[in-house]
């Protein structure tokens, strides 16, 4: 194993510690079998990787890997089909909910989820998103919102905040010119076909745990055929925002969450 634990300025017998602690039965966390061994193509510190892992963990824990069909989008997560250890289809830009509809309607006993970014879901795929939601397709949408087009180099997204700079709004997003940030999860939550809509984030360990619980819930509602579930996950784009990963998480908490507050937006009413 290509592990390194270096002894620096501490006076600890690291080898003795290793010998004592590094045992199979002491593992409290390891990489999920829901992901492949392919190294992720994301920038260092990108939230995509965390969300990928959470989905993989949920599939592993629910023991449903053999029953899941994932739909990957176009955007930074276009290679998701190489990272999930799942059967995966890669959809055209914005079309994932339609592709998922085709899959779910013909494979109704499988868990089907789409993994989409804000450009894919809230711009080019708005129509597919709304109508899949309105039909109450029994699918789960995992929606990564980082307020920017990461893959193409940091252009303005529908979710970009007012005054936020991007390569296509270099002086900041102006309401008069570009309109307001689009809050699509709140928009589709009232639709009767949507059973569960929630907004989570992965910028702290506690938030990561909550996000995972939300993903799990969404999959459980899918099993119960309750309709469409959408889990929006606020994420950083440190490259696009031109910050370090740590700074970007802080910036997100201070700026993004005001526009996109965390928490459940809609939960199933019946037991």
């Amino acid at each position: 194993m290509e592990t390194v634990i270096e002894k620096t300025n501490v006076n600890v017998d690291i080898e003795a510690l290793r010998k004592e602690i590094i045992k199979e039965e002491n593992i409290v966390f390891k990489k999920t079998i829901g992901l492949t061994d392919n190294p992720l193509s994301y920038c260092p510190g990108c939230g995509h990787g965390v969300v990928h892992r959470l989905i993989g963990e949920v599939c592993e824990e629910m023991e449903i890997i053999q029953d899941v069909i994932a739909i990957a989008p176009v955007g930074c997560s276009v290679f998701a089909y190489d990272f999930f250890n799942l059967d995966t289809q890669s959809a055209a830009h914005g079309r994932a909910p339609a592709v998922a509809t085709g899959v779910k309607r013909t494979m109704p006993d499988k868990y089907v989820f789409t993994y989409q970014g804000d450009g894919d879901l809230a711009a080019i795929g708005t129509g597919e998103t709304i109508h899949a939601a309105n039909r109450g397709e029994n699918i789960t949408i995992i929606f990564i919102n980082n307020g920017i087009y990461g893959m193409t180099g940091g252009q303005m997204a529908p979710t970009t905040l007012l005054n936020m700079k991007s390569s296509t709004s270099p002086y900041g997003r102006e309401m008069d010119v570009h309109g307001y940030p689009l809050n699509i999860t709140d928009m589709i939550a009232p639709l009767r076909g949507v059973c569960y809509a929630t907004r989570q984030s992965v910028h702290t360990p506690a938030n990561v745990r909550k996000a995972k619980a939300a993903i799990k819930k969404a999959f459980e509602y899918q099993k119960l055929k309750k309709g469409l579930s959408i889990v929006e996950i606020m994420s950083n784009c440190n490259s696009g925002w031109k910050m370090t990963p740590v700074q970007s998480n802080k910036w997100m908490e201070e700026n993004m969450l005001e526009n996109f507050p965390l928490g459940d937006i809609k939960v199933p009413q019946d037991k």
Binding site: A91, A98, V99, G102, V103, T106, M107, G127
Partner: peptide
């Protein structure tokens, strides 16, 4: 056989993509 009226021709062909990807 599943019969579904889609919201657009674009959605319809992508539904076909999804079902065809499952070998249907």
């Amino acid at each position: 056989m599943v019969v579904l009226q889609a919201e657009s021709e674009i959605a319809a062909i992508n539904m076909v993509y999804g079902a065809a990807g499952c070998g249907k």
